[in-house]
Write a protein that binds this DNA or RNA. Structure first.
Lengths: 122, 122
DNA sequence: AATACAGTTGAAGAGTTGTTCAATCGTTGT
DNA sequence: ACAACGATTGAACAACTCTTCAACTGTATT
Protein backbone atom coordinates (compact mmCIF):
# COMPACT_ATOMS: atom_id res chain seq x y z
CA UNK A 1 0.00 0.00 0.00
CA UNK A 2 1.35 3.37 -0.98
CA UNK A 3 2.72 5.61 1.74
CA UNK A 4 0.25 8.44 1.40
CA UNK A 5 -2.63 6.04 1.88
CA UNK A 6 -1.48 5.29 5.42
CA UNK A 7 -0.55 8.80 6.39
CA UNK A 8 -3.34 9.85 8.73
CA UNK A 9 -1.09 11.89 11.00
CA UNK A 10 -1.83 15.28 9.53
CA UNK A 11 -5.54 14.64 9.10
CA UNK A 12 -7.70 16.57 11.56
CA UNK A 13 -10.98 14.69 11.26
CA UNK A 14 -12.55 11.22 11.19
CA UNK A 15 -13.97 9.46 8.19
CA UNK A 16 -17.62 10.10 7.50
CA UNK A 17 -18.13 7.69 4.63
CA UNK A 18 -15.82 4.77 5.31
CA UNK A 19 -17.04 2.67 2.44
CA UNK A 20 -16.55 5.43 -0.12
CA UNK A 21 -13.05 6.21 1.12
CA UNK A 22 -11.88 2.60 1.11
CA UNK A 23 -13.45 1.98 -2.27
CA UNK A 24 -11.75 5.01 -3.82
CA UNK A 25 -8.52 4.06 -2.08
CA UNK A 26 -8.50 0.73 -3.90
CA UNK A 27 -9.14 2.30 -7.27
CA UNK A 28 -6.62 5.15 -7.14
CA UNK A 29 -3.40 4.90 -9.16
CA UNK A 30 -0.31 4.55 -6.97
CA UNK A 31 1.22 7.72 -5.59
CA UNK A 32 4.33 7.72 -7.80
CA UNK A 33 2.17 7.76 -10.90
CA UNK A 34 0.10 10.65 -9.59
CA UNK A 35 3.24 12.57 -8.65
CA UNK A 36 4.61 12.06 -12.16
CA UNK A 37 1.30 13.21 -13.58
CA UNK A 38 1.39 16.41 -11.52
CA UNK A 39 4.97 17.03 -12.61
CA UNK A 40 3.94 16.67 -16.23
CA UNK A 41 1.05 19.11 -15.91
CA UNK A 42 3.29 21.51 -14.04
CA UNK A 43 5.39 21.67 -17.21
CA UNK A 44 2.27 22.56 -19.19
CA UNK A 45 1.29 25.13 -16.57
CA UNK A 46 3.46 28.02 -17.75
CA UNK A 47 2.44 30.44 -20.47
CA UNK A 48 5.87 30.56 -22.08
CA UNK A 49 6.06 26.78 -22.34
CA UNK A 50 2.49 26.59 -23.62
CA UNK A 51 3.36 29.07 -26.34
CA UNK A 52 6.50 27.15 -27.26
CA UNK A 53 4.61 23.87 -27.48
CA UNK A 54 1.84 25.51 -29.51
CA UNK A 55 4.45 26.79 -31.92
CA UNK A 56 6.24 23.45 -32.21
CA UNK A 57 2.88 21.85 -32.86
CA UNK A 58 2.95 23.80 -36.13
CA UNK A 59 6.60 23.53 -37.17
CA UNK A 60 10.12 22.63 -36.15
CA UNK A 61 11.88 25.80 -34.98
CA UNK A 62 15.25 26.97 -33.74
CA UNK A 63 15.79 28.90 -30.49
CA UNK A 64 16.12 32.25 -32.25
CA UNK A 65 12.90 31.74 -34.20
CA UNK A 66 10.99 30.99 -31.03
CA UNK A 67 12.57 33.97 -29.27
CA UNK A 68 11.51 36.28 -32.09
CA UNK A 69 8.04 34.78 -32.27
CA UNK A 70 7.42 35.26 -28.56
CA UNK A 71 9.41 38.47 -28.14
CA UNK A 72 11.64 36.98 -25.47
CA UNK A 73 15.38 36.44 -24.99
CA UNK A 74 17.17 33.35 -26.26
CA UNK A 75 18.21 32.68 -22.69
CA UNK A 76 14.72 32.40 -21.26
CA UNK A 77 13.57 30.31 -24.21
CA UNK A 78 16.55 28.03 -23.79
CA UNK A 79 15.82 27.59 -20.10
CA UNK A 80 12.24 26.58 -20.87
CA UNK A 81 13.30 24.27 -23.69
CA UNK A 82 15.55 22.46 -21.24
CA UNK A 83 12.59 21.82 -18.98
CA UNK A 84 10.49 20.62 -21.91
CA UNK A 85 13.32 18.34 -22.99
CA UNK A 86 13.72 16.87 -19.51
CA UNK A 87 10.03 16.01 -19.59
CA UNK A 88 10.54 14.33 -22.97
CA UNK A 89 8.04 16.67 -24.57
CA UNK A 90 10.49 18.08 -27.13
CA UNK A 91 13.59 16.78 -28.88
CA UNK A 92 16.35 18.64 -30.68
CA UNK A 93 18.88 18.23 -33.45
CA UNK A 94 21.88 20.39 -34.19
CA UNK A 95 22.72 21.58 -37.69
CA UNK A 96 25.88 23.65 -37.59
CA UNK A 97 25.37 26.48 -35.14
CA UNK A 98 21.61 26.12 -35.17
CA UNK A 99 19.65 23.81 -32.84
CA UNK A 100 16.22 22.81 -34.09
CA UNK A 101 13.49 21.80 -31.68
CA UNK A 102 10.39 19.73 -32.37
CA UNK A 103 7.74 17.84 -30.45
CA UNK A 104 8.77 14.45 -29.08
CA UNK A 105 5.37 13.20 -28.04
CA UNK A 106 2.18 12.67 -29.97
CA UNK A 107 0.07 13.15 -26.82
CA UNK A 108 0.78 16.88 -26.64
CA UNK A 109 -1.75 17.66 -29.34
CA UNK A 110 -4.47 15.64 -27.66
CA UNK A 111 -3.81 17.12 -24.24
CA UNK A 112 -3.90 20.63 -25.72
CA UNK A 113 -7.15 19.94 -27.56
CA UNK A 114 -8.85 18.69 -24.41
CA UNK A 115 -7.53 21.65 -22.46
CA UNK A 116 -8.78 24.04 -25.12
CA UNK A 117 -12.15 22.31 -25.10
CA UNK A 118 -12.46 23.03 -21.39
CA UNK A 119 -11.18 26.59 -21.64
CA UNK A 120 -13.35 27.53 -24.60
CA UNK A 121 -16.65 26.18 -23.40
CA UNK A 122 -18.61 28.69 -21.35
CA UNK B 1 -2.86 41.06 -33.91
CA UNK B 2 -2.19 39.89 -30.38
CA UNK B 3 0.15 41.95 -28.24
CA UNK B 4 2.82 39.33 -27.73
CA UNK B 5 3.19 38.90 -31.48
CA UNK B 6 4.42 42.47 -31.80
CA UNK B 7 6.58 42.51 -28.72
CA UNK B 8 10.10 42.30 -30.09
CA UNK B 9 11.61 44.61 -27.47
CA UNK B 10 12.98 41.94 -25.22
CA UNK B 11 14.22 39.73 -28.04
CA UNK B 12 18.02 39.67 -28.34
CA UNK B 13 18.41 38.21 -31.81
CA UNK B 14 17.20 38.44 -35.39
CA UNK B 15 14.98 35.97 -37.17
CA UNK B 16 16.79 33.19 -38.98
CA UNK B 17 13.82 31.57 -40.70
CA UNK B 18 11.44 34.40 -41.45
CA UNK B 19 8.98 32.28 -43.42
CA UNK B 20 8.65 29.69 -40.64
CA UNK B 21 8.11 32.35 -37.99
CA UNK B 22 5.46 34.24 -39.92
CA UNK B 23 3.72 31.02 -40.90
CA UNK B 24 3.57 29.80 -37.30
CA UNK B 25 2.52 33.27 -36.18
CA UNK B 26 -0.56 33.05 -38.38
CA UNK B 27 -1.52 29.62 -37.12
CA UNK B 28 -1.09 30.20 -33.38
CA UNK B 29 -4.18 30.60 -31.18
CA UNK B 30 -4.52 34.10 -29.76
CA UNK B 31 -2.60 34.91 -26.62
CA UNK B 32 -5.61 35.04 -24.28
CA UNK B 33 -6.49 31.48 -25.18
CA UNK B 34 -2.95 30.29 -24.56
CA UNK B 35 -2.85 32.11 -21.23
CA UNK B 36 -6.10 30.45 -20.19
CA UNK B 37 -4.69 27.11 -21.25
CA UNK B 38 -1.57 27.61 -19.14
CA UNK B 39 -3.73 28.62 -16.18
CA UNK B 40 -5.76 25.45 -16.56
CA UNK B 41 -2.70 23.20 -16.66
CA UNK B 42 -1.26 25.05 -13.69
CA UNK B 43 -4.27 23.83 -11.73
CA UNK B 44 -3.46 20.26 -12.76
CA UNK B 45 0.18 20.80 -11.86
CA UNK B 46 -0.04 20.15 -8.14
CA UNK B 47 0.10 16.71 -6.57
CA UNK B 48 -2.62 17.41 -4.02
CA UNK B 49 -5.02 18.63 -6.70
CA UNK B 50 -4.17 15.71 -8.97
CA UNK B 51 -4.95 13.31 -6.13
CA UNK B 52 -8.23 15.08 -5.40
CA UNK B 53 -9.28 14.96 -9.05
CA UNK B 54 -8.26 11.30 -9.31
CA UNK B 55 -10.42 10.56 -6.30
CA UNK B 56 -13.40 12.50 -7.60
CA UNK B 57 -13.02 10.62 -10.88
CA UNK B 58 -14.08 7.57 -8.88
CA UNK B 59 -16.74 8.97 -6.58
CA UNK B 60 -18.38 12.04 -5.12
CA UNK B 61 -16.75 12.83 -1.78
CA UNK B 62 -16.98 15.30 1.08
CA UNK B 63 -14.07 17.36 2.38
CA UNK B 64 -13.49 15.08 5.35
CA UNK B 65 -13.38 12.00 3.19
CA UNK B 66 -10.78 13.51 0.93
CA UNK B 67 -8.76 14.72 3.92
CA UNK B 68 -8.75 11.21 5.39
CA UNK B 69 -7.93 9.61 2.06
CA UNK B 70 -4.93 11.86 1.47
CA UNK B 71 -3.85 12.22 5.09
CA UNK B 72 -4.12 15.99 5.03
CA UNK B 73 -6.01 18.67 6.94
CA UNK B 74 -9.51 19.77 5.98
CA UNK B 75 -8.13 23.27 5.62
CA UNK B 76 -5.58 22.47 2.95
CA UNK B 77 -8.07 20.30 1.07
CA UNK B 78 -10.63 23.09 1.22
CA UNK B 79 -8.12 25.59 -0.12
CA UNK B 80 -7.36 23.33 -3.06
CA UNK B 81 -11.03 22.59 -3.70
CA UNK B 82 -11.64 26.32 -3.96
CA UNK B 83 -9.01 26.55 -6.71
CA UNK B 84 -10.51 23.57 -8.51
CA UNK B 85 -13.95 25.16 -8.24
CA UNK B 86 -12.74 28.49 -9.60
CA UNK B 87 -11.41 26.63 -12.62
CA UNK B 88 -14.80 24.97 -13.04
CA UNK B 89 -13.23 21.54 -12.65
CA UNK B 90 -15.32 20.54 -9.63
CA UNK B 91 -18.75 21.44 -8.36
CA UNK B 92 -20.27 21.04 -4.93
CA UNK B 93 -23.58 20.54 -3.20
CA UNK B 94 -24.37 20.98 0.46
CA UNK B 95 -26.39 18.42 2.41
CA UNK B 96 -26.78 19.60 5.98
CA UNK B 97 -23.33 20.17 7.42
CA UNK B 98 -21.64 18.12 4.74
CA UNK B 99 -20.45 19.54 1.40
CA UNK B 100 -20.05 16.99 -1.37
CA UNK B 101 -17.68 17.58 -4.25
CA UNK B 102 -17.72 16.00 -7.69
CA UNK B 103 -16.22 16.59 -11.11
CA UNK B 104 -17.79 19.36 -13.17
CA UNK B 105 -16.10 18.61 -16.45
CA UNK B 106 -16.03 15.53 -18.63
CA UNK B 107 -12.66 16.52 -20.10
CA UNK B 108 -10.78 15.79 -16.87
CA UNK B 109 -10.79 12.06 -17.53
CA UNK B 110 -9.47 12.45 -21.05
CA UNK B 111 -6.75 14.88 -20.04
CA UNK B 112 -5.67 12.53 -17.25
CA UNK B 113 -5.61 9.55 -19.59
CA UNK B 114 -3.42 11.36 -22.10
CA UNK B 115 -1.13 12.55 -19.32
CA UNK B 116 -0.86 9.03 -17.95
CA UNK B 117 -0.13 7.72 -21.42
CA UNK B 118 2.84 10.08 -21.64
CA UNK B 119 4.04 9.39 -18.12
CA UNK B 120 3.76 5.62 -18.37
CA UNK B 121 5.44 5.08 -21.72
CA UNK B 122 9.19 4.55 -21.45
C1' DA C 1 43.72 32.00 -34.71
C1' DA C 2 40.55 35.17 -34.28
C1' DT C 3 35.92 36.69 -34.77
C1' DA C 4 31.00 36.10 -34.97
C1' DC C 5 26.97 33.98 -33.79
C1' DA C 6 23.55 30.31 -32.01
C1' DG C 7 22.84 28.39 -27.94
C1' DT C 8 23.64 27.00 -23.01
C1' DT C 9 24.41 27.59 -18.18
C1' DG C 10 24.59 29.25 -13.15
C1' DA C 11 23.58 32.62 -9.83
C1' DA C 12 20.55 36.09 -8.14
C1' DG C 13 16.19 38.49 -7.30
C1' DA C 14 11.28 39.23 -7.61
C1' DG C 15 7.20 37.04 -7.73
C1' DT C 16 4.20 33.16 -6.92
C1' DT C 17 2.38 29.12 -4.41
C1' DG C 18 0.98 25.52 -0.83
C1' DT C 19 0.48 24.42 3.92
C1' DT C 20 -0.30 25.78 8.59
C1' DC C 21 -2.69 28.09 12.18
C1' DA C 22 -6.38 30.43 14.24
C1' DA C 23 -10.66 32.40 13.76
C1' DT C 24 -15.07 32.16 11.71
C1' DC C 25 -19.32 30.55 9.12
C1' DG C 26 -23.37 27.44 8.52
C1' DT C 27 -26.15 23.74 9.89
C1' DT C 28 -27.83 20.34 13.17
C1' DG C 29 -29.20 18.58 17.59
C1' DT C 30 -30.19 19.19 22.43
C1' DA D 1 -29.64 29.57 22.92
C1' DC D 2 -25.96 26.84 23.00
C1' DA D 3 -22.68 23.31 21.77
C1' DA D 4 -20.84 20.32 18.22
C1' DC D 5 -19.10 19.60 13.85
C1' DG D 6 -18.14 20.07 8.81
C1' DA D 7 -16.31 23.47 6.15
C1' DT D 8 -14.31 27.98 4.83
C1' DT D 9 -11.28 31.91 5.14
C1' DG D 10 -7.17 35.16 5.75
C1' DA D 11 -2.59 35.95 7.20
C1' DA D 12 2.02 34.33 7.46
C1' DC D 13 5.96 31.68 6.23
C1' DA D 14 8.82 28.53 3.71
C1' DA D 15 9.60 26.64 -0.72
C1' DC D 16 9.62 27.02 -5.36
C1' DT D 17 9.78 29.22 -10.16
C1' DC D 18 10.72 32.33 -14.00
C1' DT D 19 13.34 35.92 -16.00
C1' DT D 20 17.53 38.48 -16.15
C1' DC D 21 22.36 39.03 -16.50
C1' DA D 22 26.90 37.67 -17.44
C1' DA D 23 29.94 34.26 -18.67
C1' DC D 24 30.66 30.46 -21.35
C1' DT D 25 30.48 26.46 -25.17
C1' DG D 26 30.43 24.91 -29.85
C1' DT D 27 30.48 25.63 -34.69
C1' DA D 28 31.46 28.16 -38.87
C1' DT D 29 33.81 31.81 -41.38
C1' DT D 30 37.66 34.78 -42.62
Amino acid sequence: MAAYLMDFDRCDCGTIHENVVSEVRNQLPDEDTLLDLAELFKVFGDSTRVKILSALLKAEMCVCDIAVLLGMTKSSISHQLRILKQSKLVKCRRDGKVVYYSLADEHVGTIFDQGLAHVCEK
